[in-house]
Structure formats: C-alpha cells, structure tokens
C-alpha cells in the first residue's frame, strides 16, 4: 500500500515534468534553447484555469492551457526564429513576462493576488493529461526517430546550413518545434492547475527548469529524459513522505529535488553533447 501510494504520487508529480521535458527535447533538438519551459508551464496553468472557469469544463481548461502555451511558444519563435534574437535572453524575458502577466490577469480576472477560485478540474487517475504525460516520451522518441519531420528536426538542430542547402526551411522546422514545445509544456501547466482545481501565483515553482535539467541529463533523448523526470519526481515524493515521517528539517528536505537536479546536470552528464546548433540563430 505504501509502495502504491508512493508510485501514484511519483506519477502525479512527474506528469508536468514529462510534458514540459518533452517540449524541451523537441525545441532543443531543433536547436532552440528551452529556458522558456517555465513560462510555458506557468501560462499554461493559468490559461487552463481561466478557460475552465469560463467554460465550466475541465476539458475546455485543457484547451486553454494548450492555447496559452502555444501563445508563449509563438512569442519565443517570433523572437528567436523570425527576428533571430538571443535565445537565452528571449527565454529569460518570457519567464519574467509569464510571472507578471499571470499575476496581473489573476488580479484582473479573479480579484486576488494569490489564487483563483476553485474551477472544474480532474480527479486522480481520471486526469487525461496524466496519461498523456506517460505516453508522450515514447511517442516523441518514435516521432524523432521514424518520421520525416523528426529526421529534419534533428538535422536542423545539428547542422542547419546542411538542411537549408537541401531545400529544407530551417525557420519552418523551428517554428513547428517551438510551437510544439509551448503546447506540450502548456499542457504540463494545465495538468498542474487542473489537478489542484485552481491557479496559485507562481505555481510552476521552477518546474520548467527541473524539466530542462531532465532534458539535459537525459542527453536530449526522449526516453532518457523521461527516466530523469521520473527520478526527479521520485526524489520529490520521497522528500514529501520523509517530511511527514522524520525529524529532518523540512527546509532541508525541500531542497532535495533541486540539489539532485544540480548534481545530475553537473556531474552525471558532464560529457554529454548537446545538439551542435543549439542556441545559434
């Protein structure tokens, strides 16, 4: 029973990581840095709650989360692909924008600086995005390895000039990738807020960065990144359960997932090789 509970909680924590990390893999393999995952998650979480509130339906909430993620994805693509802005600067700017914008809209729409009212969401295993999260990495792995678009995406991320010389539109491939990244991570955000039936200020709480760490420690490969997400989620679950059980200070325990992220990125993957064209316009 303990074990089942542990597994269940791990999955629940892992779902937004998996969706966001999937988005990260897609964008980064196409050569676009994914610091923006945090903004996709946060805007997705807010979009989902706003839409669910407006439509009084959790499914409409899913669409809202998707839409918000796509919108932020489009901003990132516009800045970096169309106008060739620095991908890191654009990422940081969008993360700040997402915090400010959701806070502003929270105040405007729900007259609160901390949280939205309770909206229709999903319960436990009935959360469709949980299952999407579990399926996304295998689907993505297959897509990258076995479809035309996947091949082109990998080529664009490694050697855009080569792709361009063969008549492939690098801009188009990257637009699709960044939009997909926004949509997937937006759904990750929707999972978060629909799971809790409400939006709270800054509820993404750095999960976008942890997802990015999973992408990197998974060496930009979907299945490995998925495993990394599950590991991070398991660590977090352990931390929560230890809080209840042991006498270790909670502040210390709360640090575990982040410390683990740091160790994973710095240590385990010291020698992994990112897509060659990552970060280059």
């Amino acid at each position: 029973m303990m074990l089942l509970l542990f597994l269940w909680q791990t999955l629940r924590i892992a779902a937004p990581y998996l969706l966001a990390a999937a988005g990260g893999v897609v964008a980064e393999r196409a050569g676009v840095v994914s610091l923006t995952l945090e903004s996709f998650l946060l805007s997705g979480a807010f979009g989902a709650v706003a839409a669910s509130h407006w439509g009084q339906s959790a499914w409409i909430g899913v669409l809202g989360g998707l839409g918000a993620g796509l919108f932020f994805g489009a901003l990132h693509a516009l800045a970096t692909v169309r106008f060739k802005a620095d991908q890191i600067v654009s990422g940081v700017a969008l993360n700040l924008l997402a915090v400010g914008l959701t806070r502003f809209l929270l105040q405007m729409g729900f007259d609160s600086s901390s949280n939205s009212p309770r909206v229709p969401g999903f319960e436990g295993l009935g959360h469709p995005l949980l299952w999407l999260g579990l399926l996304i990495m295998p689907v993505l792995a297959w897509t990258l390895a076995h479809t035309r678009y996947g091949l082109r995406l990998r080529a664009v991320g490694e050697h855009p000039q080569a792709a361009e010389s063969l008549g492939i539109s690098v801009a188009k491939v990257r637009w699709v990738a960044v939009l997909a990244s926004g949509g997937l991570a937006g759904l990750g955000g929707a999972f978060l807020s629909l799971d809790q039936h409400q939006f709270t200020d800054q509820m993404s709480a750095g999960r976008g960065f942890i997802a990015l760490a999973a992408v990197i420690s998974g060496r930009w490969q979907p299945m490995r990144a998925g495993v990394a997400c599950l590991l991070f989620a398991a660590a977090e679950t352990l931390q929560i359960q230890l809080q209840a059980a042991a006498a270790i200070p909670t502040q210390f325990l709360a640090m575990i997932p982040y410390a683990l992220t740091l160790i994973a990125v710095a240590g385990v993957v010291g020698r992994s090789r990112p897509p060659a064209a990552l970060g280059r316009a």
Partner: peptide, 25 residues
C-alpha cells in the same frame, strides 16, 4: 561538407526528399 554528423549516410542522402511509408520514414 554539408553533412549532419549525427545522422547515417542514408539519412543524410535522403534528407529533404525522404521516402516515406505512411507517416513512417
């Protein structure tokens, strides 16, 4: 050379004009 080092010879050759079978490369 305009070759993608992480892809195979065949993948590099067909890139941009890939034979497909339905969705599948």
């Amino acid at each position: 050379f305009m070759l993608v080092p992480t892809l195979t010879v065949a993948e590099n050759v067909v890139l941009g004009r890939e034979p497909t079978h339905g969705l599948r490369l």
